[in-house]
């Protein structure tokens, strides 16, 4: 099974080619681009800054607010109407939950850290690419973090468990798609969703595959951060 080829010719545990760059939006406090295959996400962080209306403030710590958006021309079909939809809202929410466990905003009560994620072009795995870019952007902004977050989708196409599904694999039926995100130092999972049918043994295996993939993504993130802050040296 491990050698079965996928439509793209990739191995089951093979990620698409990745590129990352930190510091792509000058006016933001932190920003990053993450490209995986034909999916390109950019993330910008603003804050900590004042949060209004004031009832949204927390006196104990800063609030994280994420907004995921597909640009109108970034979809694989018709134009995506701007203005957000239920899907974008939900992705924004799970993105917040994926990033929050590693952030320490206790030094910034009553403020907000805004994370904006935009997709320029897409070929599945957009929420994962967005989270991966956002983690780099948060680090770039100097927000206190206990760890980096890396994110990938794992799933099943035919009989094979595979990582980093592209659009062809993601839309195949029957198929399974499991977007996940991991705190790479501890191995803890901060994003987990699934649609499709899977046995519990398969889920265990899928998560193992995903963890290994996240470690590879982490290397790309770390390298991009080092390139900005340390001239590429470790």
């Amino acid at each position: 099974m491990a050698n079965d080829k996928r439509p793209s010719g990739r191995k089951v545990d093979e990620l698409r080619p990745m590129e990352a760059k930190v510091g792509v939006v000058k006016r933001a406090n932190g920003s990053a681009m993450f490209k995986i295959g034909d999916t390109v996400a950019i993330a910008a962080v603003y804050g900590p800054r004042e949060l209004y209306p004031a009832f949204l403030q927390s006196a104990s710590q800063g609030v994280l607010r994420c907004e995921y958006n597909m640009m109108a021309f970034s979809g694989s079909g018709d134009r995506v109407r701007p203005g957000g939809n239920r899907r974008a809202k939900e992705i924004s929410l799970v993105t917040e939950k994926a990033l929050m466990p590693v952030l320490d905003l206790s030094a910034f009560p009553n403020t907000v850290v805004d994370v904006y994620i935009e997709l320029i072009q897409t070929d599945a795995g957009t929420r994962c690419a967005g989270i991966t870019a956002a983690a780099m952007a948060l680090a770039d902004a100097g927000i206190p973090m206990k760890d980096l977050i890396s994110s990938v989708s794992v799933g099943k196409a035919g009989e094979n468990l595979i990582v980093d599904l592209d659009y062809l694999e993601d839309s195949a039926k029957p198929g399974v798609d499991i977007p996940m995100a991991m705190s790479t130092r501890t191995g803890q999972i901060t994003l987990l969703q699934m649609d499709g049918e899977l046995t519990k043994e398969e889920l265990k295996k899928a998560l193992e595959l995903g963890k290994k993939a996240c470690m590879k993504i982490k290397e790309v993130q770390t390298k991009a951060l080092l390139e900005k802050f340390n001239g590429g040296k470790k």
Binding site: V25, R27, I42, Y46, P82, G83, D114, Y116, E118
Partner: peptide, 17 residues
Amino acid sequence: VNVELRPFSSPDFVSGP
């Protein structure tokens, strides 16, 4: 022609229509 001034690109822009 549509322009979206997303809060992504400037601290002066806000979310919404």
